[in-house]
């Protein structure tokens, strides 16, 4: 029996109507996030992982972007039916988000304290005094030294790692049930990255919230995620538990991704590569989007787009796991 889902996304489609044509950034994506668990979303730039998270928050700029269809069930309610006012109640309070660039996602003209208390005063019925006390508590929780002093400082006075910790303090201040982290450590150094990942894991255990971790770094996924979803060209190509996916990746793209990163524990002369590059939206292959780069592709891959199929309780979008594949051979 599966655990209770906090968030369930069904067949989400977010398209961008640009002058150059229609871009299907997110094309029929479905997944669920269970209570207290971490879902990792992996993929390269342009695969639609960030647009998926922005769609959940309904922060996709319209126009050119538009959520064309699907359902986003949060605690059983479809967020797509909410009004803007209702969404504002949810953003920051129930679902919070941490962005990649701690330098640009803080407002440079307000103090740290003002920015953290802003969310608190907006969502909770508390006095300014109480809000300040809560904010200081949060700053302590994310281990910012001298919180009283930092409270009155501006973002430019803090280092990158500190700013990201302020962002985490801010997003956790209202105890959200879901925390979306969009490449939270990509702009940070390894030693600082280790601090931040440890912090997110620790806070998750303490508050019982669920996390969506969006990253291109499989190392980060392996350390924090319970389940993984791999995206390619707007579609989910593989979904499985983190253990399964590292033990036995099924989709050729997942296999390629894992092989092409240099490993610390093995030495090779030439790195295995995935040939070519991600197709551009105006030049999408007719069949499987990964087919032109795939080393195992057959005729059928060029002609038809594969569906997401079940393989031993896992999901993978590849013909290799279908009857048609065997027939062609």
């Amino acid at each position: 029996m599966k655990n209770e889902a906090l968030l369930e996304v069904k067949n989400l489609r977010t398209y961008f109507h640009t002058e150059a044509g229609l871009v299907k950034s997110v094309d029929g994506v479905s997944f669920r996030v269970e209570k207290g668990k971490t879902l990792g979303i992996v993929g390269e730039s342009g695969c639609g992982k960030s647009i998926t998270s922005l769609s959940i928050m309904q922060l996709v700029e319209t126009p050119p972007g538009k959520i064309e269809g699907g359902e986003i069930l949060f605690e059983g309610e479809n967020l797509l039916n909410k009004t803007e006012d209702e969404m504002r109640e949810i953003r920051g309070k129930k679902i919070a988000m941490i962005f990649q660039e701690p330098m640009t996602s803080l407002n440079p003209v307000y103090t740290i304290g003002k920015q953290i208390t802003e969310a608190l005063l907006l969502h909770e019925k508390i006095s300014k005094h109480e809000a300040k006390a809560r904010a200081l508590e949060m700053l302590k929780l994310v281990r910012i030294p001298l919180p009283e002093k930092r409270f009155n400082e501006y973002p430019h006075q803090l280092s990158g790692g500190m700013r990201q910790r302020v962002m985490i303090a801010m997003s956790l201040s209202c105890n959200p049930q879901l925390l979306i982290c969009d490449e939270p450590t990509t702009a940070l150094d390894v030693t600082i990255q280790a601090q931040i990942l440890e912090l997110i894991n620790e806070l998750k255990e303490k508050t019982g919230s669920s996390v969506i971790m969006i990253t291109h770094d499989l190392g980060v996924i392996s350390e924090v995620a319970d389940d993984v979803m791999v995206m390619y060209a707007g579609k989910v190509v593989e979904q499985a538990s983190t253990d399964e996916i590292f033990e036995n990746p099924l989709h050729p793209y997942t296999v390629g991704l894992m092989n092409c990163i240099p490993k610390l524990n093995s030495d090779v002369d030439t790195l295995p590569t995935i040939k070519g590059m991600v197709p551009s939206f105006d030049n999408m292959p007719k069949g499987c989007a990964f087919c032109p780069r795939c080393s195992m592709a057959k005729k059928i891959c060029e002609q038809k787009a594969p569906e997401l199929v079940d393989v031993d309780g896992r999901k993978v979008r590849c013909f290799r796991y279908t009857k048609e594949w065997k027939e062609e051979a």
């Binding site: 280790a194 590292f246 490993k263 610390l264 524990n265």
Partner: peptide
């Protein structure tokens, strides 16, 4: 070296967090 996230679920290491 201990802080690098390794894409291998079995390689559990003791991390030194600075």
């Amino acid at each position: 070296l201990s802080a690098i996230p390794i894409p291998d679920r079995k390689a559990k290491r003791e991390k030194i967090i600075l």
